[in-house]
Amino acid sequence: MNATRIEDYEQGTSLWRDAWIRLRKNRLAVIGGMTLIVVTLLCLLAPFVSPYGYEQQDLVLGAAGPSARHWLGTDVFGRDLLTRILYGGRISLMVGLIATGVALIIGVTWGAIAGYAGGRVDAVMMRFVDIVYALPFMIFVVLLMVVFGRNLLLLFLVIGAVEWLTMARIVRGQVQGLKQLEFIEAAVSLGLSGWTIIRRHLIPNAIGPVIVYTTLTIPSVMLLEAFISFLGLGIQPPQSSWGSLIAEGVETMEEFPWLLIFPGMALSLTLFALNFLGDGLRDALDVRTSRD
């Protein structure tokens, strides 16, 4: 009882821990999470998983169906499809993570400032969001890609720049609601600065829905990348992403259907996993369902 160090006292259950416990009980979400980890590891370890390089051709073989040597078959240039899917997954997952990260940083900062400041600052910042929202973004993306050339980094930034808008709106709404609560008023009356209040009191409490939305943004970003690559504006051969693989698969759909089916399955599997995880997170983090 008379411990003098804080660490000696029993630790309480934080809301994060509470959510984690609930998430672990959700079987679908756990399966989703595991699938994601496995997929990510496989893609990262592609050189060790597969004996082939992604541009290594077997011209004698040409396009061949699944076999013992090439589990998922080969494409028209005789390249191993499994290998290309794994390498393509690196790009797709990276786009998903980096673009979402960009969206997250811009969106959370923008939304939190607008929501906390309120009044005129809020009005101006959110009208800007509205205006950007109104631009036909596909055209904007295509234009940028045409003007600046096909640059991977640019692809990430451009997609991130599309996705932060919704994030900003979500965070602003959260912050506006939280701002009414007395603990924010208490923080003001303690004399904390505006920035400290945003950082220590507002963002940690607003972050729950943001995490959920993030897991749902990653799939939409990956789809966007797939779409851009499908249009031929994203990844250049011989590099591949799932989107570009699917695009190639579509061209030869009738003769070599596996070239479309397997990349499509890889993308769908990942998206499913993300969605299940996102659902589980939403249930786990939602305070309304948490107090039973």
């Binding site: 309480g12 934080s14 809301l15 609560l181 007395e182 603990f183 008023e185 208490a186 004399g191 009191h201």
Partner: peptide
């Protein structure tokens, strides 16, 4: 800020006046 230390407030609703993420 220098005066904030000397004057404080106690709020009505103890469920809303504490940050739920802080020990």
């Amino acid at each position: 800020k220098p005066l904030r230390r000397r004057m404080q407030m106690i709020f009505q609703d103890p469920y809303a006046s504490l940050n739920p993420r802080m020990t």
